[in-house]
Design a protein around this nucleic acid. Structure first.
Lengths: 265, 265
DNA sequence: GCCGCTGATAATGTATACATTATGACGGCG
DNA sequence: CGCCGTCATAATGTATACATTATCAGCGGC
């Protein structure tokens, strides 16, 4: 089982670090993120942190379906802790756009309408375009370049084998590698926020996707532009890529069951 | 709309506040800070909300200087409430990038290095460029157009009179109007987040700014492009505007007292 | 039969008690 | 003389008690 929910580098400066040394993490490799077991029950973690991770995990992976409403007390029972850490975790999740807290009505897992998703993609894509540009401007480390090349190869291979789900995970990784290569930790962490929000929707259409031959080609050209240090071209290509991919995704999502047209923001 | 600096969101900080340059707040500092009660004292609001607004206000307006560290207990005393709402408020503020929570070390008002500000501007500008494009794409309402035209006139007038501080507030309003015209609430709210983070720094250089004749001209051309519905041109002009303005801002900030280049965070 | 009032009730908001743990002082040891 | 382990303590983490308040059922008036 994948842990795609945590492909994106976890905590970042403006983000949700709990116990962080003074200096922020270096341009960090994302490699460590994969090792973590998806189910987080480590009892040594603070309860607040367990609550946050567990709820985030369940929301992203579908255990808590969009529209689900739970009371603080119910969550407390569910996760076997008191309301205090639950409240702190839900505040974080609300800030991240995953739930909505309505006093005396409960905590609701955000259900996204197509309009919501369109909004999310608009922000996400604008940021990713810039990330590509910055990556080009700043240059790829040898490791990042290697990594991206490996991902491109693997994606093409997955495409040939028709392993769309696997391809999708590699795609996530590719894009998050670009985010990391932007050298801007805040950009990276804001991207992760929006990534989380669209994660479930994206997951839902994975099986519907056609062979992503075109994306493979676009990815490769984006990589080449970044590698060549051509900022304008990297941004141009990424913009084109995202415009096409976003439109396609929204199209596939149209008519999907859980994408209500009037969902909550 | 409102007389204050901007309509980014609920309460907008306007006017100047006194500085309190104490690095480490001793108990003595608490009384000093309490001396100036701001208007977020409405006792009908939940304590958590009062704490949030009051802290945000003091951080943005300088009552709580960057680098200031306070313990939960001290904040509770300062704002005359228990630790519970304080904790909830600080979690929100940390998510917004205004403070850093270091367990057993206290809550520190984030001090931004030049690198931090550069990061912030990179994200902010990427989003604002897109906002301009979307505004062009979607068209301005009559009111928005009127409002922007009025702001442009007022800005030029302020420039002629050398009222830089006033100009700066109008500038905020102009940019937030564009954000609103993007029609994307998430974009707007993320812009506000980053705007908050750079607010103090921007405030600090207001008196140092030269006559913003050039910005006035750029603003007008951006407005024209948006009004003409020319998405690409609006983005192009906004990008140029921001690149120039950001570079200038960072240049002015270099050497400013509270902007430690090493990362005084 | 509908509207609005009212109070019981449940849920949240806040305070506080209690548990846990990092820190920094202190003193012994090398 | 300095290093390291230990412990007291302060600060946070969590649970729980208590206060406040919105909701909704039920009732009475219109």
């Amino acid at each position: 089982m994948s842990d795609s929910a945590s492909d994106w580098d976890d905590d970042s400066p403006a983000g949700t670090a709990d116990r962080q040394p003074r200096r922020r993490a270096a341009p960090a490799a994302l490699d460590g993120a994969r090792a973590r077991p998806s189910r987080n029950t480590d009892p040594t973690l603070p309860a607040r942190e367990r609550a946050y991770r567990e709820m985030r995990y369940r929301i992203l992976e579908g255990g808590l379906a969009p529209g689900t409403t739970l009371l603080e007390t119910e969550l407390a029972t569910l996760l076997a802790m008191s309301r205090t850490p639950i409240r702190e975790a839900t505040i974080r999740l609300e800030k991240e756009g995953l739930v909505t807290i309505r006093p005396r009505h409960g905590i609701t897992v955000n259900a996204l309408s197509l309009d919501d998703l369109a909004e999310i993609y608009e922000v996400f894509s604008a940021l990713e375009v810039r990330a590509a540009g910055l990556a080009a401007l700043r240059g790829l480390s040898t490791e990042a370049a290697e990594r991206m090349r490996g991902l491109l190869d693997a994606m093409e291979h997955a495409t040939q084998q028709g392993r769309i789900e696997h391809w999708s995970r590699l795609d996530d990784e590719f894009h998050s590698t670009i985010a990391a290569a932007s050298g801007n930790a805040r950009l990276q962490s804001t991207l992760r926020l929006y990534w989380d929000q669209q994660y479930r929707a994206r997951l839902a259409i994975v099986p519907l996707r056609a062979s992503p031959t075109r994306s493979d080609a676009e990815h490769r050209s984006i990589f080449e532009a970044i590698r060549a240090g051509d900022e304008a071209e990297a941004e141009r290509l990424m913009r084109a890529h995202r415009m096409r991919a976003d439109a396609q995704t929204l199209e596939l999502l149209r008519g999907q069951p859980f994408v209500a047209s009037g969902g909550a923001g």
